[in-house]
Design a binder for these strands. Structure first.
Length: 897
RNA sequence: GGGCUAUUAGCUCAGUUGGUUAGAGCGCUUCCUUGACAUGGAAGAGGUCAGUGGUUCGAAUCCACUAUAGCCCACCA
């Protein structure tokens, strides 16, 4: 084996090998499968730390289950990401000086597909670098033929069930993207804004002159003066006696001269602002509702791109909304309507894609009624049929689901599933009225024509007379079908039958509502079964300061760079080790050294084993095993069982710790050191070889590349074989254990022996006896097994002699008490007496405290009678031990006096 | 306003149903390089478990309140 592990070579060798040889692929078969669908990344995306974390967790679970012998499917794919992808292609067009409108819908879509063909493979290529064992032969895309079919079918079914409707509603509108956004696509951020106090003269009052207040007016405070031309009322709280006299009166809308009523509505907060609110139903969601209650006109004064339209008034037409704000404020001031301006901190919504300030806009949109879908999805979690891991996320899920709002699913984009609704050309419905008889939803235009003929009674209609809705569906409208559309639904495929429902869904907390909750609803509604059994929620990767990683902050770590620097295994292992499901993960580059160092350790340990392997190999493990040999076998057994239990509970981090400690501490630090000087080297190494392979298999889900490479280097596997499909070690059988005669006692005995070795090393360090010096050691113990360990103790302690004396012997030498016995170091060198005396005095003081506390505890009748016997006995033993320590130290103190 | 979570060593975090003198990694200090590994080995220092009160024989762990930090939802025009 080479002195250095070449991670890049191993990665370049093994991934293609696995993929080509179908190692990631299973066919539907017998038994309970283990199936997982990947959260599809945006096709425009590049791999970031969030993906690395998310996919490492999944791959660990998937590789582990596969090695357990389960029929396993991890299904990969990408999301067509409507807005994001369209934006990317539009940007490219812009460089050519074109807009999508210049190309027209079809040519533009061709262009996007072309882009997808060329660049859409970036992220799936990058996912391979991580070592993901996803079944690429089943890779899907939310906009591929099958998924599109599923989307259309689902839309039609929901429409037929009355769960989809088209309505004139106020929606969140991104003027930059030119589309509606769902509520949860809007991010609210704090904003330092202003409150403009504006006077609305009461009709009939004396008109003021420039610069002077009107004699009688109502004072309205607004943060959005530019929407003033759209006002159709002002509102006060009905219980507000200050303004009771105004209700029913009419005021004049400044700048326009239009007369608008004063209405009373509970929505108005008496305490906030002036207690009088201008009502702009077309540009504010609350005002919209007030408008409905009072039957107010809705005046839309803005274009889709955020400029003002003719209804805003001649002067403002074409003006950008923020420019218009300045203009209107100036004009109000000019006209004497502006009373004063205050600073105000409020929240402003931004587009989650492009960060533009979102506008509330009245428009016709499609919605899904969510309440009926949410109810069974709540029940599925409440009943325990579907579990959240960690469980606490279910509370957040319930909280959201119980307050769920209808979902705006139409988007004014071109890149996406076009809504399969058709209208008769020229009919009013073309503009889209709510659930008209003349809206035809069908899977094909031909079917829509049949409906149209039947419903309109006009059998002369042709395909040319029908127009399709211009809008496309929200991207999440395809991803909520992901767990079954990717398995072939609506066709009745073998995959669907065998792999649905999936087992675990692993994702970050930030898309519980976007995605997880909606998948639950879709799965239950269309498949009659929840789409997965466990929802595993992990944290978000943050930088060292705890900030979310983002391009704009420039604090992102690039997983590919980390792979290049430290290897994929290092990235995976480190991220697994530092990640807790319970909270967000803070990372910096240095943390990935842990994984890199571990990889190196594995490689070097393998080299050691290889160097010590004779050409003819090791023989059978025969003869009477030493205590250390039994110990490592049992430690292996324990590690296997522990890891199994840990992974069953999704404790990825704990699992990483277990394999790390097992390999590094148990195998390398202790057993390898033992093996170097073992009485029967051949047997000791035969055991090491056996244990080492088990360790590689335990490590494989965490570190697939180095384990595969080492397993081949050491000849555990032949060419063409893979560790991926080896059986995950479950420990040793009872028969095996009986054969090598292990007992828990032997295990504990070796643990004690190690304690004695450590104690001796500590004594050396305290008394500055260099490791090179051979020392005389005395151990006070009654353990009959001790005599058998003389040779191994001498090696480990670098002792020229070891003498055993009965326990309780009282020698005037520095010592440490251990569970093995009291270890004495014979001091032959010079020692700083004063320093020793001081150290001993400190230790005595510490012990006196413990003794006092435990004596108090033991003389407490309540403790002795209530606490379990074992606890009391342990307390007594400890007290006795500490007393002995004191006696020993006092004796020693005299030596240094 | 509604909901959720966290606060343990200098840093990042473990700590299973309450039960030895609260652990790990990194960092720090001291020592150690002739053969698996300095990306290493050995040893060590470092914590009144945010605070207060309660339950208990016994609390980092359970309960209440307080403080601080963070997240989510809804939002004030």
């Amino acid at each position: 084996m080479d002195k250095h592990y070449d991670a890049k070579a191993a990665e370049a060798k093994w991934y293609p090998f696995w993929e080509k040889n179908g190692c990631f692929h299973d066919e539907p078969g017998e038994g309970t499968p283990y199936s997982v669908v990947i959260p599809p990344p945006n096709v425009t995306g590049i791999l970031h730390m969030g993906h690395a974390l998310n996919q490492t967790i999944q791959d660990i679970l998937v590789r582990w289950r596969r090695m357990q012998g389960k029929n396993t499917l991890w299904l990969p794919g990408t999301d067509h990401a409507g807005i994001a992808t369209q934006n990317v292609v539009e940007k490219a067009l812009k460089k050519e000086g074109k807009r999508r409108q210049d190309l027209g819908r079809e040519a533009f879509l061709d262009r996007v597909w072309e882009w997808k063909k060329q660049y859409g493979g970036t992220i799936v290529h990058q996912q391979r670098m991580l070592g993901n064992s996803t079944d690429w032969s089943r890779e899907r895309f939310t906009f591929d033929e099958g998924c599109s079919k599923a989307v259309i079918k689902v839309f039609k079914q929901l429409f037929d069930e009355g769960l989809v409707y088209k309505g004139n509603y106020i929606v969140n509108w991104c003027p930059r993207c030119g589309t509606a956004l769902a509520n949860d696509e809007v991010e609210h951020e704090p904003n330092h804004g202003h409150f403009w106090y504006v006077r609305y003269p009461v009709v009939g009052s004396e008109k003021g002159v420039k610069g002077e207040p009107y004699a009688d007016y109502v004072m309205v405070a607004t943060t959005r003066p530019e929407t003033l031309p759209g006002d159709t009322a002002v509102a006060v709280n009905p219980k507000d006696e200050r303004y009771a006299h105004l209700i029913g009166k009419t005021v004049i809308l400044p700048l326009t001269g239009r007369e608008i009523p004063v209405v009373a509505d509970d929505y108005v907060d008496r305490e906030f602002g002036t207690g009088i609110v201008k009502i702009t139903p077309a540009h504010d969601p609350n005002d919209f509702l007030v408008g409905k209650r009072h039957n107010l006109a809705e005046i839309n004064i803005m274009n889709g791109d955020g400029t003002m339209n003719e209804l805003a008034g001649e002067k403002y037409v074409g003006m950008d909304r923020f420019k218009c704000r300045e203009a209107i404020v100036a004009d109000l001031e000019e006209g004497g309507f502006l009373d004063h301006i205050e600073d105000l901190d409020n929240q402003v919504g931004h587009c989650y894609r492009c960060h533009e300030v979102v506008e509330s806009r009245l428009s016709k949109q499609w919605f899904v009624k969510m309440k009926p879908l949410a109810e069974p999805a709540i029940e599925a979690v409440r009943s325990g049929e579907v579990k959240f891991v960690p469980e606490r996320w279910s509370k957040i899920y319930f909280n959201w689901m119980e307050n769920i709002q209808d979902w705006c699913i139409s988007r004014q984009l071109w890149w996406g599933h076009r809504i399969p609704a058709y209208y008769i050309r020229g009919n009013a419905c073309e503009e889209g009225t709510a659930n008209s008889e003349l809206v035809f939803v069908a899977e094909t235009k031909e079917e829509a024509l049949e409906q149209a003929k039947a419903k309109s009674g006009n059998s002369a209609l042709s395909l040319d007379d029908l127009v399709q809705d211009e809008d496309v569906l929200d991207t999440w409208f395809s991803s909520w079908l992901w767990p079954f559309s990717t398995l072939g639904w609506p066709e009745n495929t073998k995959d669907l039958d065998y792999y649905y429902p999936t087992c675990d869904l692993v994702t970050a907390q930030d898309i519980i509502f976007f995605w997880v909750a909606r998948m639950m609803m879709a799965g239950i509604h269309f498949m009659k079964k929840p789409p997965f059994k466990n929802i595993v929620i992990h944290g978000i990767v943050r930088d060292a300061q705890g900030r979310k990683m983002s391009k704009s902050l420039g604090n992102s770590l690039d997983p590919l760079e980390l792979i290049d620097m430290y290897s994929a295994d290092a990235l995976r292992f480190s991220i697994a080790l530092i990640t807790s499901l319970d909270c967000d993960t803070k990372v910096n580059k240095e943390k990935f050294e842990i994984g890199r160092n571990f990889t190196t350790k594995i490689w070097n340990a393998a080299r050691f084993l290889e160097m010590n392997t004779p050409a003819e190999g090791f023989g059978e493990i025969a003869g009477e095993l030493t205590a250390d040999e039994k110990h490592i076998l049992l430690a292996t057994d324990k590690a296997c069982k522990k890891l199994e239990e840990i992974l069953e509970n999704y404790r990825i981090q704990d699992g990483a710790l277990v394999v790390y400690d097992f390999f590094w501490t148990q195998i390398c630090d202790w057993y390898v050191e033992y093996a170097k000087d073992a009485p029967d080297k051949n047997r000791a190494f035969a055991i090491l070889r056996d244990v080492f392979y088990k360790a590689l298999k335990l490590l494989h889900p965490y570190m697939p590349f180095v384990t595969e490479e080492v397993a081949h280097q050491l000849g555990y596997l032949k060419d063409g074989e893979t560790i991926m499909r080896e059986k995950f070690p479950a420990g040793y059988s009872e028969e095996e254990k009986a054969a090598w005669g292990h007992t828990e006692e032997v295990y504990d005995f070796v643990e004690k022996k190690r304690e004695a070795i450590t104690a001796l090393r500590a004594l050396r360090a305290e008394y500055k006896v260099t490791p090179a010096t051979f020392v005389k050691v005395t151990v006070a113990t009654d353990d009959a097994r001790a005599a058998g360990e003389v040779e191994s103790l001498k090696k480990a302690m670098r002792a020229e002699s070891i003498e055993f004396v009965p326990a309780g012997s009282d020698l005037a030498m520095p010592s440490k008490m251990t569970a093995f016995g009291t270890v004495y170091l014979s001091l032959e060198g010079l020692v700083d007496k004063a320093a020793e005396a001081k150290r001993i005095a400190g230790e005595l003081a510490k012990l006196a405290g413990f003794i006092k506390a435990s004596e108090a505890k033991l003389s407490n009748e309540n403790f002795v009678s209530h606490a379990p016997e074992a606890v009391v006995a342990e307390a007594k033993r400890k007290l006795q031990e500490n007393k002995e320590k004191v006696a020993q130290l006092e004796k020693l103190a005299k030596l240094f006096a």
